[in-house]
């Protein structure tokens, strides 16, 4: 998978439009983490095409908008590699660990 969300700026502008947020539901966040790390992080690290990106880069609403509206429009072929179930799992992982998620900070 290449260049998922390669152009964050474009995405940020795209999410300005008011869209009713659809909270991710039913995905498997553990599987989503695996898929994200295996496929997406190839491009989304410092120095690579997609630039640094992590679940906490965006809010839950932004992630939902990305997965329901944007769908990686910068590079749709990367999106097409995944099944619907895979995408749901990745969305759940991103949502569960978003900037404003319920995952508390920790110690150490």
């Amino acid at each position: 998978m290449e260049r998922i969300v390669a152009c964050i700026t474009v995405l940020l502008f795209s999410v300005i439009f008011t869209v009713s947020a659809m909270a991710a539901e039913g995905g498997n966040p553990k599987k989503g983490k695996y898929l994200w790390k295996k496929n997406c992080k190839v491009c989304h690290v410092a120095g690579e095409e997609g630039g640094v990106l992590s679940p906490s880069t965006k809010t839950q609403k932004s992630w939902d908008r990305f997965f329901t509206k944007n769908k990686h429009k910068k590079k749709p072929e990367a999106w097409g590699k995944f099944s619907e179930k895979d995408l749901k799992d990745i969305q759940q992982y991103m949502y569960d660990h978003a900037m404003d998620s319920d995952q508390p900070e920790t110690c150490g």
Binding site: K30, K33, Y34, K38, K41, V45, D102, Q103, P104, T106
Partner: peptide, 26 residues
């Protein structure tokens, strides 16, 4: 940067749902 293998059929955290805001790691 590490990649934990994926295993099918592993259930979720044992006490998931018992706490209003449970830390997955802690």
């Amino acid at each position: 940067d590490y990649l934990a293998p994926w295993y099918e059929d592993v259930p979720e955290r044992l006490e998931k749902g018992d706490v209003a805001y449970l830390s997955n790691k802690d």
